[in-house]
Design a protein around this nucleic acid. Sequence first.
DNA 1: GGAATGACGATAA
DNA 2: ATTATCGCCATTC
Length: 116
Amino acid sequence: MSRDVEQPEPDAVEEYVEAVLSLVEQIPPGRAMTYGTIAEFLGRGGPRRVGTIMAQYGGGVPWHRVVNASGRLVPGHEAEALRRHRAEGTPMRGRDRDHVDLDAALWFPDEPPATR
DNA sequence: GGAATGACGATAA
DNA sequence: ATTATCGCCATTC
């Protein structure tokens, strides 16, 4: 057949954004997830994709509970994120307790992803 | 289609 | 612990 079938529909993007946001919303206080873990759990896209999305649409969810693989806080909002983590009692590490202790705080969803 | 760009990740020095 | 490099995924120019 002719006719190519590859037209990146805006819906697919929106759906992915929703998937990321709804997952981040589920992260309990005092816990955290990494960009890579989120991407892995969703089974599509990559850490980079997740980061880009959080940067644009993460304003309505607990964005501070998303950290990079090193436990580093969100660039540009470190002070705010740090303040919130201290308020939530998130396990921190480092001399200044400015990194999330992923060994203790990494959270993983109990149920499988919403099979779309 | 190639190059540049990111709230990333793993690894090497 | 910090910096540099490369790989990855998708978007934008």
